[in-house]
Design a protein around this nucleic acid. Structure first.
Length: 590
RNA sequence: GCGCGCGUAGCUCAAUUGGAUAGAGCGUCAGCCUCCGAAGCUGAAGGUUGUGGGUUCAACCCCCGCCGCGCGCACCA
């Protein structure tokens, strides 16, 4: 078991001894400033607070019952009632040696695996994937990798936008303005062009709009021709999606698009009507406030000129069509029926926050018993901005296509790699540039706090200094280089190596290595891959300090050499595993 | 207008959600390559966390007011 977990359990036991009725689930330890120790717990202060106890007094009592001599050198009470723990050096080295033997890599599988559905990426048929999709795709993929690594059962589902009113216009465009040759060359661009042409015509001419609506009605009614055109558009789009996902190294267990749920939408609405959850209004059907929440917190109410008026979620339009709320309700229903998840996580733009708020409430009203058994979570994220602080666009003002972005990333990386490694064959430089370019884009997207907007900058993400993918990849490549060099001279038996820590840089590196698992758990708990980014950046920094100050291959004696090589190896493995968990590949040299 | 979100070093961002002296990178300044990859490392300067109050052992974080910016406001998703 990981050391911090052992401490946590002992601490919880001690707290239960003193306060038998306390909820100890919040009694946790966290890594802390090295001047205080390795781990800190501030839990006793809040416990003391709610019980009106003297916090230092409580800490003293708990400390008397605390038996952590196996793992800790010292435990101290500090400040207002912190407990500071310092690990024994022997515990540290034992953990490193076990990792060197391959018994673990500083994390462990969860004791209570959950089933979790993660819904991310969700591109639209007949539209190019654009820069915005990188966020949902990258964050979603990093989260699913983290949950899986920790031993949870993960189901990824790409909720593709393959249905909706846009198909009326697309069908009309396909029938009247399709350029076959252009479709052969670049299907998505041609489909996008068709949409724009017809959309402009519809804006100018109401008759065209009626024609488009008629095409949509025919599609929805199962018209054979329209249906086969629609299928063709999906097929062509899927080729685009597959190409991009292959490039990004992203896979899904399922890709059940919106259209998959069509068969149930009528039932959903009828059931909502029947149960009195939805009602008719102005020809449409919507879900309204049930008055159970104060108006300020009620997403189904909006204040207009001092009065609270209805802001319903529509589940059927006045023309009989359905909205995405309906589809999303059917989707939750299907997912619960099919996979019985403990949790469903939606990695979707923050702007859809109000939608999910309503959606989750409606589902809870619709199926209260099943809703109790599942946690529905909207993991929202912010926008990508240009350096002018406005949404990231091309120079001509169009949205940036994801495929163009990835091409440019690789090209820019190739230029840099070629400058630094002119001697490498071009094929190798291409491959290194591919990994660096894609990795840089992904990493730059995962690094900021999920919910904040961030400014897109090629120079920053591809820089080799600072908190970037190239910096981490460089640290990894340097370590691999040590082993290439080591292989020339001597045979190294890492798994049987004794770890000896003496230099302060060795200790700092070692203490950071053992916190890998704790970081992974924080990522999964809070759905924040940026914790892992920062962990890896610090790891690379601590490694380079170690490397600058502690000769490895040139160490005086064989035992030190072997021990330091083992530290190098462990660092490389954690870096590689960590990057992989972020969906980023590594290179042996760069 | 109403609601939601944001405001942290010159710039770009963190701060494990109420914990200890708010941290990085870029930029600036000063150092380090006859020495395992200098695409690197070390150090310095830089902050009233938009602003005014409040809550408490403790506030960037919670509450109230104000200022500024962004987003959203039924039959698109």
């Amino acid at each position: 078991m990981l050391s911090h977990k052992q401490i946590e359990l002992k601490l919880q036991a001690a707290v239960r001894d003193i306060l038998p009725d306390a909820d100890v689930s919040a009694v946790l330890v966290r890594p802390c400033d090295p001047k205080f120790g390795d781990y800190q717990s501030n839990a006793l202060m809040s416990l003391a607070k709610t019980r009106k106890l003297n916090p230092r007094q409580l800490a003293t009592e708990v400390l008397a019952k605390l038996e952590v001599s196996e793992t800790c050198e010292t435990v101290e009470i500090a400040g207002a009632g912190f407990l500071n723990f310092r690990l024994k050096n022997s515990v540290l080295t034992q953990s490193l040696e076990a990792a060197a033997r391959g018994e673990h890599l500083f994390f462990e599988k969860t004791a209570s695996p959950k089933t979790v559905v993660i819904d991310f990426s969700s591109p639209n048929v007949a539209k190019p994937m654009h820069v915005g999709h990188i966020r949902s795709t990258g964050i979603g993929d990093a989260l699913q990798r983290t949950w899986r690594l920790l031993g949870h059962r993960v189901i990824t589902d790409n909720h593709i936008g393959d249905w909706g009113t846009q198909f009326g216009k697309l069908l009309l465009g396909w029938k009247q303005a399709l350029d076959r040759a252009a479709l052969e060359r670049d299907a998505i661009t041609e489909l996008e062009r068709l949409y724009k042409v017809i959309n402009a015509e519809c804006d100018a001419n109401p008759e065209r709009l009626e024609e488009a609506k008629a095409e949509l009605v025919k599609l929805q009614a199962g018209d054979a021709e329209n249906h086969s055109i629609w299928e063709e558009m999906i097929r062509l789009s899927q080729i685009q999606f597959d190409a991009i996902y292959a490039r990004l190294g992203v896979k899904f267990d399922h890709a059940l698009g919106e259209s998959f749920y069509n068969r149930w939408l009528g039932e959903v609405v009828n059931d909502l009507l029947h149960r009195g959850i939805a009602r008719e209004s102005e020809g449409a059907v919507g879900v309204f406030s049930d008055g159970s929440l104060p108006p300020k917190e009620d997403p189904f109410l909006v204040n207009r000129d001092g009065e609270w008026i209805d802001d319903p979620a529509l589940v059927r339009k006045s023309d009989g069509g359905f909205n995405y709320t309906t589809t999303d309700l059917a989707t939750i229903d299907y997912r619960l029926k099919t996979w019985s998840p403990d949790e469903i996580i939606y990695v979707v733009d923050d702007r859809q926050g109000p939608h999910f708020k309503k959606l989750f409430i409606i589902f809870t009203r619709w199926q209260p018993d099943r809703a109790k058994k599942v946690k529905l979570v909207h993991a929202g994220f912010g926008k990508i901005l240009g350096d002018d602080g406005k949404p990231f666009k091309t120079r001509s003002g169009d949205t940036v296509k994801l495929s163009d972005l990835l091409v440019e990333a690789e090209e820019r990386a190739f230029k840099i790699v070629s400058e630094k490694n002119a001697e490498l064959p071009e094929a190798e430089r291409r491959e290194i540039a591919r990994v660096i370019g894609i990795g840089a884009v992904k990493y730059a997207d995962l690094l900021p706090n999920r919910q904040s907007d961030y400014i897109f900058s090629w120079d920053k993400m591809l820089a080799l200094q600072g908190n970037t993918a190239p910096y981490l990849l460089y640290a990894y490549a340097r370590i691999r280089s040590i082993f290439r060099k080591a292989a020339e001279s001597s045979a190294i038996q890492l798994p049987t190596t004794n770890i000896q820590l003496s230099a302060p840089e060795e200790f700092r590196l070692a203490r950071h290595l053992v916190n890998f698992g704790l970081t992974l758990e924080a990522v999964a708990d809070e759905l924040r891959p940026n914790y892992l980014c920062n962990y890896l950046f610090e790891l690379a920094g601590k490694f380079t300090s170690f490397y600058e100050n502690c000769p490895v291959l040139k160490a005086g004696d064989a035992a030190t050499r072997a021990s330091r090589l083992a530290l190098c190896d462990l660092t490389a493995r954690v870096l590689k595993q960590g990057l992989e968990t972020l969906g980023i590949a590594t290179v042996e040299q760069m």
